[in-house]
Design a binder for these strands. Structure first.
Lengths: 216, 216, 216, 216
DNA sequence: AATGAATGAGTTTTCATTCAT
DNA sequence: GATGAATGAAAACTCATTCAT
């Protein structure tokens, strides 16, 4: 077999896989995994039902691939790089704003994640390790640096990072996925501000505060 | 029909309902609602499948009753009463410790809630209004009081409350429901401390800080 | 649970199982296992498709149970007992006649057996051990006795038994299952006679022949 | 079109057809016709699935061609010729040995034949007439000659022939296709001997026996 | 009230066949 | 001719719900 043809074929197959995964994301987000039939996925993807099975051996496999392919924050590494040299007082608000924007854009995926991850212990474990832990570590590395430099209180950096993600995740759940917008709407600015303030003032070293005070 | 007999019968029926709901909670937490069969619920409850239908007309109804019967924080009102007169510096750590203990005790219910709430937009809305909003308001009332008294920064009290719940909820998810205990274990004290500190320092009015400083 | 009720229920279930197995035998014999749908089995049994799955977990299991439940010669042990004391010259013709009658009565089962046994190595092994070998041994025991007594030539009794079954099985295949009746019909008497003669004269000890001769 | 090119093309196509038929024989023998997919045939043949359909319009057609192309005993006519002039006492053991060798060599085909022939009444009829009956007649002709010459008992020559094929066929089934080799193994010599003896002594004219006796 | 056998609509999965390249 | 992606009809299997006992 000529290598070129094989490569082209693989490229084509990858496109198909994406097409199916995107359709699956839409319909799973809408109705939930168990409540969605393969017919519906196929219809949304514009393919015949049988074609799904050419690319994914089972429905469960389709979900698994979906959860591992679409990451909630694929650009987190770059984001962290871009604020690496900023002190938290400037970096955290920027980070919070960016993460919040991405979370909102991907609320459909978030809906699938929040639902499916907890229906199966194995799925939850994989997600925690492959997605969660990585994100915590990226942020924790940044925090650890600024803890050393004295801009942040010394504390468990992973746990501190989880506080930040926790607040943002919770606002995503309540505002975007649970009709919180109707009962207590918050603008993007408001979310960014409340989270940044809560995190920053909390993590800021008292030394700095007094320093500023003294500086008056 | 003698009233006594009717009352006894109702008591008996209530017992049966509980028996079934508890079984449902166990198996739904383990495998998820859609992946669990009524046979499994019946087996766990020690009843015949048909008996479930004597007490709950449909499987969906069983879930609904489950979600409304078992509340994640039924004792929140009393909890708030007990700290009403404590300033945040003392009240918040106590509150955090208590909520965290309840969350952990009810992680099975949490697993069901987190999953099922998002599989249906209507359910999510109802949950947000009947459970979420009530909890936020209870805490927000407390926060508003102490904002007025100058112990806390003035800010949206609902959003501020959501920050606290957000952190606790996220630690519940990651530590208890997603094998976070294996990848980055945190003791109950550690969770309580990191959340209280983050919240308190973040929400504390600068005035108080300076006041305390001045007072020295 | 009262033991009586459980026993009665088991009896009832056994009846259902038989009902389904008999239907399966009919339709499998007619169209072959792979070509038959569970709908057809259900229709023939007068039950709903789902009911089949109450009693047999898979289609393959239904076939397996069918092959091991319906034996081609369940009465072979009694048959062998009934001729135990007859010398082969009298016993073999009787045996041949009886086996042939049973074979013909059960040609539907034979058709299923002959088809399905060879489509799967595991099935074939099980059948050989559970059905074939047992039958060979029963006949071989009888033959071994009369070999010792000098009425039959000394030879491998199992192989000798297989010769007898081989001839009868082949006549069953060709006469009953392959329209041999149209191309070269043989009466039951003719089959019995040719097989008995072939077997007897072949297995008869030369000593006996000469003895008979001498006796003239 | 030049005749040469057409001939070359046909030769090429014939090669392809063989390639596919041989692959089909292997996989059908292994898993049975219905349980085998065209993908598996293609993979075994080293071709793409679509290519099979260039040469065989349907899967069923592939089976038909397979059954008619590969005969179990294509060399039976020559074999009969070679023993024509031998008396049964010499000819039958030679014939038995030769048939047994061929049967064993083609046990894969036998496995397919034995299974597929019985899954359809029409197929069974055709096979009986085109393969079975021809074989019986070839042997029966030989037997009839030696019956006339007094070396064999007078009897239905077709039925007598079927006895011989029956025994050999049955040993093929049990030894080669049903793991009989594990439960009661027989050497080629043993099979040849037991079948020849059974047939010969059984078919030998008593007159000859007494003649031989007398002759001593 | 309690049971569990029976049901059948609904779902996943398979795979022979087609056809554009 | 050769390919293999796409198809969709058909089949196995599931399970919430019903109902006679």
């Amino acid at each position: 077999m000529p290598r070129v043809a094989a490569a082209r074929r693989e490229q084509y197959a990858a496109g198909r896989r994406d097409q199916i995964l995107e359709a699956a994301l839409r319909v799973f987000a809408d109705k939930g995994f168990a409540e969605t039939t393969m017919d519906e996925v196929a219809a949304d993807a514009g393919l015949a039902k049988g074609s799904l099975y050419v690319y994914f051996p089972t429905k469960e496999d389709l979900l698994r691939k979906l959860l591992s392919r679409f990451t909630l924050l694929p650009e987190l590494p770059q984001l962290m790089d871009s604020i690496r040299e900023m002190p938290p007082r400037k970096g955290i608000p920027k980070l919070v704003t960016q993460i919040w924007r991405r979370f909102r854009e991907r609320r459909e995926l978030a809906r699938v994640v929040v639902r499916e991850i907890h229906s199966n212990a194995e799925r939850a474990r994989i997600f925690n390790e492959e997605v969660g832990l990585r994100a915590y570590r990226l942020l924790a590395d940044y925090l650890a640096v600024w803890m050393k430099r004295g801009d942040l209180k010394r504390a468990d950096p992973i746990a501190t990072a989880q506080c930040l993600f926790g607040m943002l995740w919770f606002f995503l759940l309540s505002q975007e996925l649970m009709s919180g917008k109707e009962t207590h709407p918050l603008s993007d600015q408001a979310v960014g501000k409340v989270v940044s303030q809560m995190f920053l003032a909390g993590a800021a070293a008292p030394a700095q505060l007094s320093a500023r005070k003294r500086g008056r």
